[in-house]
Amino acid sequence: MKESKYRRFLLVSLPVPLFLLLWELIARSGFYNINLFPPPTIVASAFYYMLISGELLRDILASLTRVVVGYLLGSSMGIIIGILTGRIKSFQLAFGQLIQLLRPIPPISYVPLAILWFGLGEVSKYFLVFVGVFFPVWINTHLGVSNVEKTYIWAAKSLGAGNRRTLCEVILPASLPFIIAGMRTSIAIAFYCLVAAEIAGAFSGVAFRISVSHLVFRVDKMMAGLVVLGVMSAIADKAFTFFVHKYVPWYDMSR
């Protein structure tokens, strides 16, 4: 028992330092150009200078705003349209086909169009994140809302609920697990779209910084940017599950 705990500790805590050490050694060995493949210590110092110059925080703030605005717009629209197509037959007939046709288009392929339509400003970033987030949230909401167990709806109606109360008190919460799943998948997609949008043309942002650092061969700054993006996306995901756990306590129990 004690031995296995020790083993577990080693297995969990060793890989990251070992990975960094190996990276450092290879990068410093002269095996490859150190400027193109900088070791973690150099990346860390690049990160430090980006941080104290204030550049990094400005970039993070810019990227974060884009992701949050696009994500909130995309997911709230996805939920609203999902409820409509999932619950109202005529809506499903009218828009179901259309949305199904648009859905398989990879969101990143809208980049040139977004730039033509909305320029290089913030709107085109919001638009791309919106497109990326909307479809998975819509399809999940649609599935959740249209597959609510019949007995829940019957129970509500036989307890006196009308259509509106049934929607708010039963159909929405019953499909919440689906909506949550769609919204969680969309977090990662929102970051993909952000990166595509910023690389295609922007004046600030973490992915923009990676892109301009590439033009001046600052691979250390590029790598620092990658790490920041990874951490941002991971924190967003953790924050999401934290809020779900806090405000939808039955979600974990019902699975």
Binding site: Y152, W154, G160
Partner: peptide
Amino acid sequence: GIVFQQHALFPWKTVLANIEFGSKI
């Protein structure tokens, strides 16, 4: 009122909230 074979309680509501559902409506 109906009691179902598979209880059909609302899993997102507590026991109290389930029982209060009708009064709330």
